[in-house]
Structure formats: C-alpha cells, structure tokens
C-alpha cells in the first residue's frame, strides 16, 4: 500500500492557501500549512515532507531563506522545493533555481498546470 505524499504549503495569503489546500487534497496529497517562513521551518521540524510549495514574499523570513535552510539541512536537503511566487522577473526565477529549487511557478497560476507539475515531481 502506497502511503500518500506529503506537501507543505507556505503562503501568507489566506485565500491562496485555502485554494491550494483544496487542490492538493483533491489530488490525494497530505497537506501541511505554514503562513510565514519561520512557521514553515517549524512545520519541517515537526513532520517530514516530500515537497515544499513556497511563496517568496512573506513576513519574518522570506522564501529564499527558507529554501536555503532546507537545502543546507542535513536531513531535509532532498526535499523538493517548488517556488510559487508573484515575483516574475527573470532574475528572481534564476535566483530561486540557483538555490536548489526543483521548479518555479509564477502567480497567478493555472490549477491544472500546477497540479500536473507537482505530481510529476512527486512521482518521478
């Protein structure tokens, strides 16, 4: 019996979190939620995740820092990080990818496209 993959949604916009949570659950994933960078790292401490869907502009700690911390962490370093951000400049995307992210998706996104890319990564 295959256990469900676990995904951590990190975003400070409640309505976005709400839709993402619904979307991911409907695809059969286990969902964790964090509303800021520090909250995300706290969640990581508590449970193991297969993928972190990460916003960049957030209170306290930004997404780049979170990604960096994950990728430098002894245990978490193999966790996939997918940025989901309204920052659409090429330099922002390059910076995100250079930090070890698996993908970078620009807001607003298509729900179909987003779920396809997430599932592809998780099933690879």
């Amino acid at each position: 019996m295959k256990t469900a993959k676990r995904i951590l949604i990190v975003d400070d916009e409640p309505n976005i979190v709400m839709s993402l949570e619904y979307l991911m659950r409907s695809k059969g994933l286990d969902v964790g939620i964090a509303r800021s960078g520090t909250e995300a790292l706290d969640q990581m401490e508590l449970e193991a995740y297969d993928l972190v869907l990460l916003d960049i502009t957030m209170p306290d700690l930004d997404g780049y820092h979170v990604c960096q911390t994950i990728k430098n962490h002894r245990v978490w370093k193999d966790t996939h990080v997918v940025f989901l951000s309204a920052k659409s400049k090429q330099s922002d995307i390059e910076k995100g990818m250079s930090l070890g992210a698996t993908d970078y998706i620009v807001k607003p996104f298509s729900t179909k496209d987003l779920s396809r890319r997430i599932l592809e990564i998780l099933n690879a």
Binding site: E13, I16, S19, K107, F109
Partner: peptide
Amino acid sequence: SPLTAIRA
C-alpha cells in the same frame, strides 16, 4: 496576489 487567489 488577489488575482492568484481569484483565478485559483
């Protein structure tokens, strides 16, 4: 940000 939420 609002557009993202609306579209999703």
